[in-house]
């Protein structure tokens, strides 16, 4: 799954945003179909909790729907939506107690379709949960959601170099946690 925005998709999104700005509610459903999946993955990476990730996706699209005619001003919809979701998540995490995050961190979020054992899937999942939020976000967006470093940087509001640096640090830490070469 990629967030690659080519000319065709860009043009289609532009039309959908125009329709949304004009008050056509059906346009929001089409925009949801285009972006909900990577947004949900981003929400999972941030919160490690399915219910929270669903709430984040909902809050993001509610904000988009509430823009009205201002929706025409959006230049890069994917980037815009990821940033809305991220800022909403950060706000929620700041309000939440540390113990809640610990409990959420124990939840297995990812399914390891090609894993050789349940143990290795759990080990990888829990190692991911132990990464700092920004590093976990970079790993999941890049490897699981398929975003380029440039797209990860734009979605998280940092430079491409910073996104790549976070990813590299995360992989070093993951290797140390999993004791793999």
């Amino acid at each position: 799954m990629t967030m690659t925005v080519g000319p065709l998709r860009d043009g289609r999104e532009r039309l959908l945003l125009e329709r949304l700005a004009a008050g056509e509610r059906e346009a929001l459903a089409d925009l949801y179909d285009l972006h909900a999946d990577p947004l949900f993955g981003h929400g999972l990476a941030l919160t490690r909790n399915r219910a929270d990730a669903e709430d984040l996706v909902q809050a993001t699209f509610v904000k988009l729907a509430g823009l009205g005619p201002a929706a025409r001003e959006i230049r890069h919809l994917g980037r815009y939506l990821h940033r809305i979701l991220r800022s909403t998540a950060i706000d929620a995490l700041r309000r939440r107690a540390v113990r809640d995050e610990f409990v959420a961190g124990l939840q297995p979020v990812y399914l390891h379709a090609g894993s050789r054992s349940e143990d290795s899937r759990l080990a990888l999942d829990q190692a991911l949960a132990r990464l700092p939020l920004q590093q976990r976000e970079a790993v999941v967006l890049h490897l699981v959601e398929g975003l380029s470093f440039r797209e990860v940087g734009r979605a998280t509001g940092v430079a491409t170099f910073t996104a790549a640096s976070r990813y590299r640090l995360a992989m070093v830490r993951l290797r140390r946690l999993l004791k793999t070469p």
């Binding site: 949900f40 390891h112 290795s120």
Partner: peptide, 11 residues
Amino acid sequence: EVRRLRREGVP
């Protein structure tokens, strides 16, 4: 290994 992780899709 990480790339092969697949989360559940959006409900």
